[in-house]
Design a protein around this nucleic acid. Structure first.
Length: 734
DNA sequence: ATTCTTTAGTTTTTT
DNA sequence: ACTAAAGAAT
């Protein structure tokens, strides 16, 4: 017990030992957030205030859930398996899946309902549009997918959506058709998991009461990332803060909310504070991660945002090194410089794994990878395809899904002609028409067909029937193995020249099935229905797509987007591409909300660094096959000058206009901007930084005409991109 | 059914 | 510049 609370600082201790009441913990970057959350749970259990089964902990990723369970197992004197079983720890989606399986009848679902991941959902929508003969130019599937998900996340079924124009009315109709299609096929998408559970609990009072009374404590991690529906879901369990509901313990950081684009509502934090009358918000402001200069820079950046809940990180670690800033002439130059810097760090004894290269968008990784590769520096990139998202795995899973549920049309379409068995587009069309006529699934429509299409499809159906029959007595890994052979998938990839890796992945799927079976066995549940374990395995595959492709353990430099760096920390961080239009991204600068999210993203990036932070930008950059000339990011100017050290000749500051460095003075060793045309009349050149009396600072990005008509195009950032007549415009070199 | 050609769209991502 | 996906030709 004293062990548990030892080494907590004053605020952490206060948060951990709060009396049972609704609580909001504002936890800054590196302030020991996860530690507080897990210690709180352990403390509740150890002091006898709550039994493990009275606790529900919600995270956003499976990784975070696993980590929390591992830490709890180490803190609590009970074996890990028991903790895992009696305490509900998981993602919103994982927990909803568990609830819906337990109460599938009340929720109006098959016991073996399947879960569509985003790609499956998109495929289902495309299939729907095709069946209804809808022009997918007018109704792009992706847009419709977003429309449906956004409405579900707002808690709205198709009948409840208000439509004021024809376009929306049609989309609502398609939403309704989509709902019916999912219903018919016995499948549920991600948003549906949440909405179904919400409606189930709302509608079914005894059930709601049961869970409200069971879960005395609900703890939420990354609360700033919750969407509206998730918040309503929590409110339901807490009985809106009235008697008989759970206590909500929400931990989050409004300054690290970077998922607005996918529905996260930072406003939930304030709403929670108000609606649940959270008396005093506990602020964790001592940072144990970064040196003083880095923190000060982060604070200076984030303070410019409006509507913050307010928080100022501090450290007792001392100022540390200055933040290093570098201006390159081209993106290639920037990458080369980063690589040189890494080489010298490694020479000085740094471990490559402690160095991270961060960027705003994935497109920027290519050039960095290229330079790292040429220099022979091991690196790993986060963000590739994940295991369960691979083509061969999705194919195998589709066969498995068809065994569990023949009405799953998405799975049917995926494998009906893969490997090819002579069921081409025409046969598939005939079948889809028949399914519509008979109002049945594709599988069930096959017997109604005659002719050539009927014959080949009947063969496919009997293949599936045989698969189902022959696997009832098999263990899950045996079943998977059997299906890989009988379906012809193995054979197909054996004959493909690049198929070796895919074959290995298929074997890995059998492995995954073995591991899953072992985990389930330790929870000692007996499943009466054949293929019930299969169904659980499929849910697992949808909900947990596996780790991103990267070899763990190797001493390699880490490359990732700022988004995926959230929650991680490194001794040395390079943040590249700090340019207007890139970071902040041009699509975000139109509205204040968007810009502030970019600023939070910048805040997240800066606070990843423990000891050393490099910021770099480039005068020119190849993007979509064209050279772009960007201004330095406004975020650079938001860092107080005293905290930085420029490794390249410093440019004048935007506001001050006091600079004296010559116009674009290039260190002689560096090559000039590639693709920069010859000097223009008046000595101007593309890529040059200029100042206009009205528009402020800008970069010359193009030129046309000659003599008296010569014009230049200048990117003034905020003030836009303008064509100016050289003979008229009053421009100063910066 | 396979292969070649054209076209559109390239911020961030988990479940 | 590059890719993935849809369309057209074989």
């Amino acid at each position: 017990m004293s062990d548990l609370l030892a080494n907590l600082n004053e605020e952490q201790l206060r948060a951990v030992t709060l009396p049972p009441q609704h609580a909001l913990i504002l936890a800054g970057a590196g302030s020991g957030k996860t530690r507080v959350l897990t210690t709180r749970i352990a403390w509740l259990v150890q002091t006898g205030q709550a039994a493990p089964q009275q606790i529900l902990a919600v995270t956003f990723t499976n990784k975070a859930a696993k980590e929390m369970l591992a830490r709890l197992a180490a803190m609590l004197p009970m074996n890990a398996a028991r903790t895992a079983r009696s305490m509900w720890v998981g993602t919103f989606h994982g927990l909803c899946n568990r609830l819906l399986r337990a109460h599938h009848r009340d929720a109006g679902l098959l016991q073996l309902f399947q879960i569509l991941d985003s790609a499956d959902q998109l495929a289902a929508i495309k299939r729907l549009l095709k069946a209804l003969n809808v022009d997918d130019q007018k109704f792009p599937p992706r847009e419709l997918q977003h429309f449906i998900n956004a409405n579900k996340e707002a808690g709205l079924r198709a009948h409840a959506v208000e439509a004021w124009d024809d376009f929306t009315r049609r989309r609502v109709e398609l939403y309704r058709e989509y709902e019916q299609q999912c219903e018919r096929e016995g499948v549920v998408d991600f948003a549906e998991l949440l909405l179904r559970t919400y409606e189930l609990l709302e509608r079914n009072e005894p059930l709601r009461r049961h869970y409200q009374e069971r879960f005395r404590h609900v703890l939420v991690d990354e609360f700033q990332d919750t969407n509206r529906l998730q918040y309503r879901w929590l409110k339901l369990l807490a009985n809106d803060g009235r008697e008989g509901g759970a206590c909500l313990f929400c931990v989050g950081d409004d300054d690290q909310s970077i998922y607005r684009f996918r529905g996260a509502e930072v406003g939930n934090m304030r709403d929670f504070e108000r609606e649940f009358r959270v008396g005093s918000v506990v602020r964790l402001e001592q940072n144990y991660r970064s040196h003083g200069n880095i923190l000060e820079a982060a604070n200076a950046i984030i303070v410019r945002n409006s509507g913050r809940m307010g928080k100022n990180l501090w450290t007792d670690q001392g100022a540390g090194e200055p933040i290093r800033v570098f201006e390159a002439f081209s993106d290639g130059d920037e990458a080369r410089w980063i690589v040189e810097e890494i080489q010298s760090l490694v020479r000085d004894g740094a471990s490559r794994a402690d160095v991270a290269l961060l960027y705003r968008s994935n497109a920027q990784s290519r050039i960095l990878e290229h330079q790292l590769f040429s220099a022979g520096i091991p690196y790993r990139v986060y963000g590739g395809l994940r295991f369960f998202e691979r083509q061969e795995i999705k194919h195998a899973l589709a066969y498995l899904r068809l065994i569990a549920n023949p009405d799953d049309d998405t799975a049917f379409m995926r494998v009906v002609n893969f490997p090819t068995r002579g069921i081409g587009a025409r046969s598939q069309e005939v079948l889809q028409d028949a399914a519509r006529t008979w109002n049945s699934s594709l599988y069930a429509a096959v017997p109604h067909l005659s002719g050539k299409a009927g014959t080949v499809l009947a063969q496919f159906v009997s293949l599936m029937e045989a698969m189902r029959r022959d696997t009832t007595a098999l263990t899950l890994p045996e079943l998977v193995d059997h299906v890989l052979d009988v379906s012809g998938l193995r054979n197909h990839y054996r004959n493909e020249k690049e198929g070796q890796e895919r074959l290995e992945n298929l074997d890995e799927l059998i492995n995954a099935a073995s591991n899953f079976t072992a985990e389930m066995a330790s929870e000692a549940q007996t499943l009466a229905q054949p293929h019930a374990l299969l169904s659980d395995f499929l849910a697992h595959a949808s909900l947990e797509a596996g780790d991103h492709q990267a070899d763990v353990g190797a001493d390699a430099v880490q490359l990732m987007t700022v988004h995926s760096a959230k929650g991680l920390e490194f001794d040395v961080v390079f943040l590249s591409g700090l340019e207007e239009g890139l970071f902040p991204h041009e699509n975000s600068t139109m509205e204040r909300e968007g810009l502030e999210e970019e600023r939070r993203l910048m805040y997240v990036a800066v606070t990843r660094a423990r000891q050393r932070l490099y910021l770099s930008f480039s005068q020119s950059r190849m993007l979509h096959g064209q050279a772009r000339y960007n201004l330095p990011s406004r975020f650079l100017e938001e860092i107080p000058e005293g905290l930085t050290r420029w490794l390249s000749p410093k440019r004048p500051r935007g506001g001050a206009g006091a600079g004296s460095s010559g116009s674009g003075s290039a260190p002689s060793a560096r090559a000039p901007v590639p693709a920069a045309p010859a000097t223009l009349p008046g000595g101007w050149r593309v890529g040059q930084l200029v100042r206009h009396a009205r528009f402020g600072q800008g970069v010359i990005i193009d030129a046309r005409g000659g003599g008296a008509d010569a014009q230049i195009q200048v990117n003034f950032g905020d003030s836009g991109i303008k064509w100016l007549l050289l003979s008229v415009a009053k421009l100063d070199a910066c």
